[in-house]
Design a protein around this nucleic acid. Structure first.
Length: 507
RNA sequence: GCCGCGUUGGUCAAGGGGUUAAGACGCCUCCCUUUCACGGAGGAAUCACGGGUUCGAAUCCCGUACGUGGUACCA
């Protein structure tokens, strides 16, 4: 058996969204599981849609996810170039070969003529508006024209495209690793353009040629490609033989959470969640679309949640490391039906990974968040804080909301909770507590709590109420981890200072 | 319109002729915590519909409905 080789072939037209990254992931997992190669090929054949920076962005996304290609325009490899625009001349050769073998033809129809043709078909009540065997003999192409006419047109430099000639009444069948045997009636397949007037190939020609030249063994892509698969099968048959054809699999779509349809960037904006892996800045409008990374996702969680969107291993396991995924992945267990994206579940995965990983794994990322808040702390102090509050964090950005009071004194107090409980007794208690804490020799959690409770007992005040007030003094609100753990972490001096500050407000 | 693909709780889903139809997210209740979370224990909620085949159908077959993708010199 030949070496397993798979490819992901995006076009650099904008941000890389969930569905794209999942396609990468499934390709990657399949390759790694079988000791194969994962190739990244840039499909930049549509010059009108080229977006500067989009290619680099794709590499950045892959790098963040840890899905590094074995071969690509930047990683190199023996089958380059890996950018289709740099392979332009290769495709023409194959297109011409198809023409000379009678499987394709030159078509000189202008855009206007094409529009007129569709208009006529529509008026005639035709159910299909395709350029196919029904109408091709009425169009301006080398099938209908005399060879001399065609030659004259060609010699005159008339713009033309090359179209595949799909014969009617043939059954085109192939096996999809996810969906099983699939059959199409060639009569319904149109004469797709293979080579455009600008000399660039369309996707249809380019995938087949490149998959062959790059020795791709398994061709996986999104379900949106299923309807054009017959064209690709035909091309394989005419060009390289069906025996050489890779095995196919078409992944289900990722759908929007509400309503219906394919998940798009717009849905994320509308519903308030990211759909891109990384922040994407539109080079024209300058608009920034937030990415999973910047919103506070760990790459481990992102990969994990994508993996189980349309795949599972048949057990109850949901949290997987990449190694586990590589080990257990199988195309056959990928679903046929599309899945609606659920952001709540996505966040749950991130929470799981924040708990699963040692805090040292993301300390530096939290440090970045703190830097934005103009807070600088030592790594060891931060690590201590992180361990205390990670349970309550779903996104990395939550570490600020859940732990800001470890880095700065409260600026406002939940007075509504404290006022009703406040009296001279409480005032006296905290005044004394301050002094006791000032003389506490060993500052650690149990001791802090012991001093606190002993004083409460002496003054015969209920500990519960005092604890709540103490918490508000240290934090500003009634939230956070154990109050004595907080006091222990922020330290003796700071604890006393905060009591003092609060006394000024409540007293 | 035509062609393709799909359809198990609100969502992700296991199960592929006999099950009390797993589990997870979310939701609700309770416990824990004199805070808020986390955690723990429960709960509500499902085989799209109609016909077959079969002793028996979520599971196999056929229709229908619904959804979705394609129908470009875009990928």
């Amino acid at each position: 058996m030949n070496k397993i080789r798979v490819r992901f072939a995006p076009s650099p037209t904008g941000g890389l969204h969930l569905g794209g990254v999942r396609t990468v992931l499934f390709n990657y997992l399949f390759a790694k599981k079988h000791g194969g190669d994962f190739i990244l090929r840039i499909e930049d054949t549509d010059q009108s849609r080229f977006v500067p920076g989009a290619e680099q962005y794709i590499f950045d996304c892959l790098a963040w996810c840890g899905l590094v290609p074995d071969e690509s325009p930047v990683h190199g490899g023996p089958y380059g170039p890996y950018r289709q625009s740099e392979r332009k001349e290769i495709y023409r050769t194959y297109a011409e070969q198809l023409v000379s073998e009678g499987h394709a033809y030159y078509a000189f129809d202008t855009t206007e003529e094409l529009d007129a043709m569709r208009e006529r078909l529509k008026e005639a009540g035709s159910q299909s508006l395709q350029y196919d065997h029904h109408i091709r003999m009425r169009m301006n192409n080398s099938l209908r024209l005399h060879p001399e006419e065609t030659k004259a047109l060609l010699d005159a430099g008339t713009p033309y495209v090359i179209r595949i000639k799909v014969d009617a009444n043939e059954t085109i069948s192939f096996r999809d690793m996810i969906r099983g045997e699939l059959e199409f009636d060639s009569s319904r397949v149109d004469d797709k353009v293979l080579l455009k007037a600008d000399g660039m190939p369309t996707y249809h020609l380019a995938v087949v040629v490149d998959d062959h030249l790059m020795k791709i063994s398994h061709a996986f892509r999104g379900e949106e490609w299923l309807p054009s698969a017959p064209v690709h099968i035909l091309l394989w048959k005419y060009l390289f033989g069906l025996d050489a054809m890779p095995q196919w699999a078409h992944f289900p779509l990722i759908l929007k959470p509400d309503g219906n349809g394919k998940l798009s960037k717009r849905d994320g904006d509308r519903l308030g969640f990211p759909v891109f892996a990384l922040d994407w800045k539109d080079p024209v409008s300058g608009d920034i679309t937030r990415g999973f990374k910047e919103i506070g996702f760990l790459c481990e969680a992102f990969v994990n949640l994508l993996a189980v969107l349309g795949w599972n291993n048949g057990t109850e396991q949901e949290v997987f490391t990449v190694e586990e995924l590589i080990n257990q992945f199988s195309i056959e267990r990928v679903h046929k039906g599309g899945a609606k994206f659920d952001y709540e579940k996505a966040k749950w995965f991130n929470h799981q990974w924040i708990q699963k990983l040692p805090v040292s794994a993301y300390t530096s990322q939290v440090l970045e968040i703190l830097k934005d808040k103009n807070v600088s702390v030592s790594g060891s102090y931060l690590q201590q804080v992180l361990d205390l509050i990670k349970d309550r964090c779903t996104l990395l950005s939550d570490f600020w909301d859940q732990g800001f009071f470890f880095f700065e004194s409260p600026i406002a107090y939940d007075e509504a909770s404290v006022k009703p409980k406040w009296d001279t007794g409480k005032n006296n208690y905290f005044d004394t507590l301050m002094n006791r804490y000032a003389t506490t020799a060993l500052w650690y959690q149990d001791e802090i709590e012991k001093v606190f409770k002993e004083l409460a007992m002496e003054q015969q005040i209920k500990v519960g109420e005092l604890q709540m007030i103490f918490r508000v003094m240290l934090v500003g609100s009634k939230t956070g981890p154990g109050v004595f753990a907080i006091a222990n972490t922020i330290g003796q001096e700071e604890t006393i200072k905060r009591i003092q500050n609060a006394l000024l407000v409540f007293g």
